[in-house]
């Protein structure tokens, strides 16, 4: 990354091009409604969206909602992570369990979590628990599946060695299984983090759990179009932050790891 900052040769540095991209995008967003290419009632110019955002940022309402969204997201992600890692390690280490659960996991995983929305509404009304149910259901599988393939990736020689030295199961998990599984778990965490955010916002929009999504829904139904776009921008920035955080965490935990795992393995 640092290389691209050097001004040299005929090549325009990447950051300048990226900046130009952002500027062009904002210009289009500003001019299209002003020139009447799109209906300004539905898509206000960028300057008005940003003004609305600045105004929203001064209200405590937005910050409370942001806190609520992050709480739901973080709680759901934490539950999925713990459950996914524990169950993944246990199921993955015991071959009988792996064989017995394989079909069930394969069946339940593609069940869309939004199918649970009516159930969540019935059980928890608009409370956070309903949205949590969606978040956990969606992100749990991401972690579990990654951890399971991580445990299966454990070097059989290392595993046999541990067994021949009669390590206790816990020691074996700590010294042999976990180091191999960690990179997989981190990939699972990264995927789960963005899925969890999607479902958090979904729950807020549809169930009405308090948070940014709920404010967005209210803004839309009350015709406050500029505020609605301001909230869209907030969710986007939140998403960028989540992605960057997850990637940074993945890099930090795995800095010692020789193989940086790619996306394809997921």
């Amino acid at each position: 990354m640092t290389r691209t900052h050097r001004l040299a040769g005929r090549r325009t540095p990447a950051w300048a091009l990226g900046l130009a991209g952002v500027v062009v995008f904002l210009l289009v967003l500003e001019l299209a409604p002003r020139l009447g290419l799109v209906d300004a009632r539905f898509l206000p110019p960028a300057s008005r969206i940003l003004a609305a955002l600045a105004e929203r940022l001064r209200t405590p309402e937005l910050w409370t909602a942001l806190g609520q969204t992050l709480t739901t997201w973080g709680t759901g992600l934490a539950i999925s992570l713990v459950a996914g890692v524990v169950l993944g390690v246990v199921i993955g280490s015991v071959s009988v369990l792996r064989a017995v659960t394989a079909s069930t996991i394969e069946f339940l995983r593609p069940v869309p979590s939004v199918a649970l929305i009516p159930v969540a509404v019935l059980l928890y009304s608009t409370g956070m628990a309903g949205t949590l149910l969606l978040v956990v259901y969606a992100s749990f599988w991401q972690v579990l599946v990654q951890v399971l393939s991580g445990v299966q990736d454990v070097d059989p020689v290392a595993s046999d060695t541990a067994r021949s030295y009669r390590f206790s199961p816990l020691t074996r998990i700590r010294t042999v299984v976990w180091p191999t599984t960690l990179p997989y778990a981190m990939t699972g965490l990264r995927l789960a983090a963005s899925v969890a955010l999607i479902l958090t916002v979904t729950g807020e929009l549809l169930i009405g759990t308090p948070g940014i999504g709920k404010l967005l829904g209210i803004a839309q139904s009350s015709g406050a179009v500029e505020s609605m776009y301001a909230y869209v921008v907030v969710t986007g920035l939140l998403g960028v932050a989540v992605n960057l955080l997850a990637r940074a965490l993945e890099g930090r935990v795995l800095f010692w790891h020789p193989s940086v795992r790619g996306e394809v393995a997921a």
């Binding site: 091009l17 991209g21 963005s194 955010l197 929009l205 909230y231 998403g239």
Partner: peptide, 20 residues
């Protein structure tokens, strides 16, 4: 390089907000 930052932002917007 030109498109990446804008795409990163759009990718990060949770798609359900598209509905309203």
């Amino acid at each position: 390089a030109f498109a990446e930052p804008v795409l990163e932002f759009f990718r990060a917007i949770p798609p359900p907000v598209l509905v309203p």
